[in-house]
Design a protein around this nucleic acid. Structure first.
Length: 155
DNA sequence: GCCAACGTTGGC
DNA sequence: GCCAACGTTGGC
């Protein structure tokens, strides 16, 4: 069992968007960064993921998801009309991947980036490091547990 | 909205 | 293979 964190801009796709989907499940697609893609390819069913709101008034962790389907080709890359279209990705040789997630919970209070940065136990996360733009990253179990404690939520 | 930091592209 | 130019991310 592994733990992860994935970012999304709430103006485009928020935790509420996910929780409003049928079965609260959806594809996490449109990732166009190799490092992030490679992490998605490592994800296994039942892995847990924090949902992070980026590029907004208060960036931070807002919810929790689980992986319900492991990586498959991101078909948006084949769609000429999609903003995520990539002519270099073909059905014969797909370049990008997606996973399917299920929204488990929206936390009562979000845990802001400011609070996360204030925790010495989280200084090794790419998230809290200056200049890091990685949108999909692994979370150590120690970090996961600490974050849950900070959220004061039942696990 | 600004802009620093980053990742990618493509000419050479 | 280098690296300048460009486009994007994302905090502030």
């Amino acid at each position: 069992m592994h733990y992860w964190l994935m970012k999304s801009e709430p103006s485009t796709y928020s935790i509420d968007t996910l929780l409003a989907k049928p079965q609260k499940t959806d594809y996490w697609d449109g990732v166009r960064n190799y490092q992030a893609r490679n992490f998605m390819r490592e994800m296994k069913k039942k892995d847990l993921v924090f949902f992070y709101h980026s590029n907004c008034e208060t960036p931070g962790i807002v919810g929790k998801m689980e992986i319900v389907e492991e990586a498959t080709p991101d078909i948006l890359a084949f769609d000429f009309n999609s903003p995520y279209y990539d002519p270099k990705s073909t059905r014969e040789n797909p370049r990008w991947s997606r996973v399917k997630v299920k929204g488990l919970k929206k936390f009562k209070h979000e845990l802001s980036l400011t609070s996360l940065k204030a925790q010495p136990g989280l200084h090794e996360m790419p998230l809290t490091q200056r200049g890091s733009r990685l949108s999909v990253m692994p979370v150590q179990k120690k970090e996961w547990d600490l974050i849950l404690r900070l959220l004061e939520e039942d696990k």
